[in-house]
Design a protein around this nucleic acid. Structure first.
Lengths: 187, 187
DNA sequence: TAGTAGATAGAACGTTCGTTCTCCTGCTAA
DNA sequence: TTAGCAGGAGAACGAACGTTCTATCTACTA
């Protein structure tokens, strides 16, 4: 078992387990049998809720996407003003790189395994990145920054590199560099 | 067949083909049969030169590593002075992202498929990245830049993000952002 | 109360995987 | 001359892959 959450339906347990395994060990490396045994769920249950493994992969990325959007909405509410939201975003990315996404970006990792840009996985990745960039640009514009698009592009660039660096290099050093550069970008 | 190069031994043809396939389509996605048929080489030939697929994967990354080191040495000779070398490095990365490594960084992509940091693949990746950063730092120091380590860290960060952005987003925009930021870093 | 949907259990399918094996040809260094 | 090695051709291996199937049990609900 990968973990446990109370009051979880088999479907939720299955998706959560699959998502964790795909992220931690790679998509093609993880077999269906492995997912089922770790989730404590039978084959029938899986094929009732998902067409196949590929559907599970897409659902995994959709879950990641929904989670990040949720965190964003949460921060938007918590922030007193647009400028504080920018700071919360930077802090959020830094925390994410050291705490949760310590194995790189799930979307980038998935793209490494799916070369075909027309594949559902790649389309979802493209949509997610597009949402992320435009959302950052809107936040930067609301904060009154002079070149919102450039700020958004810079933050996307920094976030990609930070998640990778925190995975492959020294996390503390990378996050430190990220925070300094990013804070300079949003002031 | 993936391509052809005259006066190539079966071993070289095999490794070159495998390297291209691993990079273009992902490592676990590419089977041995596929490599053999595309390279026009038999199983026996492969297993005579390599212990197995995993050896081929390591050789693929070693080839990438050697290639990049070669380009670096070439630039070092071509540069009239240390400052011009820094500019050549930035130009080289920009050209690489749009011309050759249009599917991200082979080392980062491989790391997405190999979660175990003790695995030979991951060790090779760590060594490569370590070499890259220290080499950049040495070049920055020779160019008389005030904080060579910070410059090197910044360039590594920028390169990682640029190769990803050129793969998943708009290459022209990303490379433009990279060049501007990087040139600011080395002056 | 009967019916339907979700879940469990386990066998089985055909395919692909990486690997090993045998047999044959051609070159070349001892 | 002959032994040894690189390479080609193809069969075969067991294991793992993703998927489908049948059978049984339970919970809800029309």
């Amino acid at each position: 078992m990968v973990g446990s959450v109370p009051d979880e339906t088999p479907r939720e347990r299955l998706l959560r387990t699959a998502s964790q395994l795909f992220y931690r060990e790679g998509i093609h490396s993880v077999g269906v049998d492995r997912i089922l045994s770790e989730a404590g769920v039978t084959r029938q249950t899986m094929y009732r809720h998902f067409r196949g493994k590929e559907d599970l992969v897409v659902a995994h990325l959709a879950l990641e996407d929904a989670t990040i959007r949720g965190l964003f909405a949460q921060a938007s509410v918590a922030a007193k003003d647009p400028k504080e939201l920018m700071r919360l975003i930077v802090d959020g990315i830094a925390a994410d790189a050291t705490r949760y996404h310590t194995r790189g970006c799930p979307f980038i990792n998935a793209s490494a395994e799916y070369p075909n840009p027309d594949h559902p996985v790649r389309k979802l990745v493209a949509e997610h990145r597009e949402w992320f960039r435009t959302t950052l640009a809107a936040a930067a514009r609301a904060a009154g920054l002079s070149d919102p698009k450039a700020v958004a592009a810079g933050l996307v660039l920094l976030r990609d590199a930070t998640l990778i660096g925190a995975y492959l290099d020294d996390p503390k050093r990378v996050v430190h560099t990220f925070r300094n550069t990013a804070l300079g970008l949003i002031t």
